[in-house]
């Protein structure tokens, strides 16, 4: 593991490279005729390892700054970045790209990289007022079977 200042410089160089490549990709796709555009947009929930305010701010700004990816919102309590990607072949590919950037950022930001684990399963996020189940469990959840038992 390199010492801290070199990790920061390494991250900045890596990010500059990614930034230029993303610019080229987006520019090329805009100039392509509409029928041959490679665009496959998607909005994906990416589990994130950021903890502090500054880490959340920086990772979401850097994602948005890279053309072709855009942070729409974050959920701190679930540890999720909602990222809109322009060229997404599969969910796993965008998640891997974003998490690689986050790993490198956190390695550069933290003197000791420490805990980089993320929630592995995507938590179920629902609006607050729909969190409670619509009916009490067991009461009328399986009307067909109950009706069958009674008759």
């Amino acid at each position: 593991m390199m010492s801290w200042p070199f990790r920061i410089i390494g991250f900045l160089l890596w990010y500059a490279k990614e930034f230029l490549l993303a610019n080229l990709a987006v520019t090329a796709d805009v100039l392509r005729p509409r029928r041959r555009m490679k665009m496959r947009p998607a909005i994906v929930a990416v589990p994130a390892a950021s903890r502090t305010d500054s880490e959340w701010t920086l990772i979401s700004s850097l994602i948005t700054l890279t053309p072709g990816t855009l942070t729409i919102t974050i959920s701190r309590e679930h540890g999720i970045l909602y990222v809109h990607g322009m060229f997404v072949e599969s969910r796993a590919q965008l998640v891997a790209d974003i998490q690689e950037m986050e790993d490198r950022l956190l390695n550069a930001m933290r003197r000791e990289p420490g805990d980089l684990t993320r929630p592995t399963e995507r938590p179920v996020v629902r609006p607050l007022d729909e969190a409670a189940p619509p009916f009490a469990p067991g009461a009328a959840q399986h009307p067909p079977t109950e009706a069958g038992e009674r008759s």
């Binding site: 805009v30 665009m39 072709g68 990816t69 809109h84």
Partner: peptide, 24 residues
């Protein structure tokens, strides 16, 4: 990126495309 503003289909893609002009 101005051409992109006209060609792209929705708000999010347009915001992404404008990122190229605002950044690079």
């Amino acid at each position: 990126s101005a051409i992109g503003l006209f060609k792209l289909p929705d708000l999010y893609l347009r915001a992404s495309a404008v990122g190229t002009s605002a950044g690079l």
